[in-house]
Design a protein around this nucleic acid. Structure first.
Lengths: 334, 334
DNA sequence: TTACCTTACTAGCACGTGCTAGTACTAGCA
DNA sequence: TGCTAGTACTAGCACGTGCTAGTAAGGTAA
């Protein structure tokens, strides 16, 4: 019959109630400074309920000039469990402020920002890729705050993710050295998309070794495949002064190292200690259970939330030392 | 100085060019049936570029009555690598049609739809939780197509995800039986949020066993923790007729089973075969490498894309047999 | 009675866009 | 010369909302 069911507008509610559209608006928005009879208020609310009225988001945004949408821009790099947890926490935190988090995974090639920006008009943006900093300039120019945790803020280095990444590498080294190890290895992931983050973590490990007067860590790429991982382990164990402990880029890589060691009959942690990053659920389920750096997504999310809230209120970015977000989860692999 | 930098509108471009706003619209939208001088067109485009004009999404949506946004509604259950891959693929597929995929992870408690719906007004919605089917009724009433792959469509059972889940369980059993096993176990995940999907997979496995004349699989919950997993394995191995092969809910649980077996000295696959689901990157990196059911995210994504495209065009839902999306990846654990 | 205040509303503008209806001007043809 | 057809535009409506300015009715005070 009717090709497309027309949507219910405030005018429809007004007609059904017998009042003006303005009154409907006042009732539904609880506009302060307006005196509305209890009877009228009840009638309007009943009609709105009955007709199934929902304010039309674009019209509201057009009129008010802002939306309650926060867009989180992710690049292709596979957001592991940590990113998922952060998304979940941040969604809940923003929801308390009436903000809705929408995640957009950007497909490569063509430019993202201009396209996305012509489609959503968010109240704020969190961009998780340092390559986009320049592309987001138009957004900033239009007054939309952009939080880029992967780009160093000049005055608060502790809040930046690269610094946190370096601190992760440093923590790994500290923990291994505390356990008595002096000849360390570093296990890089195979996926080239992870190279930037891996580089930061390795940098932190290198720096820590240098500071402690140790040799720089012996670097190897460890694919997620038993035979290849075993090869890497063999490389570390070869020579007159073999590596006795390995910092893995993350728990996945760490588990691969574990498997490689198992295949070669190298005892963990007896002959080779392994420490991961992320504290993935599986970390407790492998044998031996994996000692790892937990990133505490809740704290990271709260930091992002506060940075976002500050940006929306034109306030200063909050100071949140990276150390609060990181903790060694000691299990059995070191 | 200026509190908030006013955004550049088509009127600004018109003023800068010296033409009317209508002309600007015709040029920027390439409106057919309009004759615009090459000179005017060039002037308008130059001014738009120079001023950094971007059409304002809410105004456009208000006028045209539709957006190019597709919202993917996820529930809290941790979207593992499969969901991530689907998101990535689907984003790319929709981008080819000029559609933007935005993912919203719904935080529990309060109702999602009415809130979200008052914020974005998408062109279509994919909802990944069967509980939302009723809540999405207002959307359908407003003419917004809603694809719910987790709810059985009455006429095309093969496209529904529950059926696919059951088929997964069935495939696991088939593969184990083909390898000579007759006494099977089923490893459930610990996370209660996964219960619905786990139930479907178990159902499929049960059905397959019944069809093949075998005893129903011996069910155990396997937490992601070595000791607990070992306990489950011990349970399977106890008694006069021990289980010789286990279908795990997914690869994570399967790896936990592997670890439990390893701790007890139970040889895999010699004494106990294990088959997972998902073909997670780690599956190839554990020892022994995990035989698993790969879900082929690309095919699943294309099915979702086609269902979406059909819904947007008021066409019929495409038929896509679940078997195309599933394949056994044979490694070493069976 | 008139001026003034409060209550309970209503009329209608503005947001920026897409697009229809209209207009001035020129060219072609009888 | 008059009439039509086409070109190259412009004026302005409509989308649904938030909100300001206005207005009628009723009560109080001088």
């Amino acid at each position: 019959m009717c090709g497309r069911p027309r949507r219910v507008t405030a005018t429809d509610v007004a007609k059904a109630t017998g009042v003006s559209r303005a009154t409907v608006g006042f009732v539904l928005n609880n506009t302060p400074g307006q005196s509305i009879t209890a009877a009228t208020r009840a009638k309007v609310l009943a009609a709105a309920e009955r007709l199934g009225y929902t304010p039309y988001a674009p019209a509201r945004a057009l009129r008010s000039g802002r939306t309650s949408i926060v867009v989180m821009l992710l690049s292709q790099l596979p957001g592991g469990p940590v990113v998922n947890a952060v998304t979940e926490h941040l969604t809940a935190l923003l929801a308390e402020d009436g903000l809705t988090l929408l995640v957009h995974m950007h497909p490569g090639r063509d430019e993202p920002v201009s396209a996305l920006w012509g489609v959503v008009t968010p109240a704020a943006v969190i961009a998780f890729d340092r390559a986009w900093d320049e592309e987001l300039a138009p957004l900033r120019r239009a007054g939309i705050p952009v939080v880029t945790p992967f780009v160093d803020p000049p005055d608060d280095l502790d809040g930046a993710v690269p610094v946190m990444m370096q601190r992760i590498g440093r923590l790994q080294v500290d923990h291994l050295v505390l356990a008595g190890h002096t000849r360390l290895g570093f296990a890089l992931p195979d996926d080239p998309r992870l190279a930037p983050m891996a580089g930061d973590r390795l940098e932190g490990a290198r720096f820590a070794c240098a500071e402690l007067g140790l040799d720089l860590p012996q670097v190897a790429t460890v694919p997620l495949e038993v035979a290849a991982a075993a090869e890497a382990v063999a490389g570390w164990r070869a020579g007159p002064a073999p590596v006795t402990a390995v910092c893995a880029y993350n728990d996945e890589v760490a588990i691969a190292v574990l498997s490689g060691a198992h295949r070669l009959g190298v005892a963990v942690p007896g002959e080779l200690a392994v420490i991961g990053v992320d504290d993935v659920p599986l970390a407790a389920a492998v044998s031996p259970p994996l000692t790892t750096i937990a990133t505490h997504p809740a704290t990271l999310s709260r930091y992002l939330y506060e940075a976002l809230a500050a940006a929306l209120a034109d306030g200063p970015v909050p100071h949140r030392p990276a150390t609060e977000m990181l903790a060694v989860t000691v299990r059995g692999s070191v």
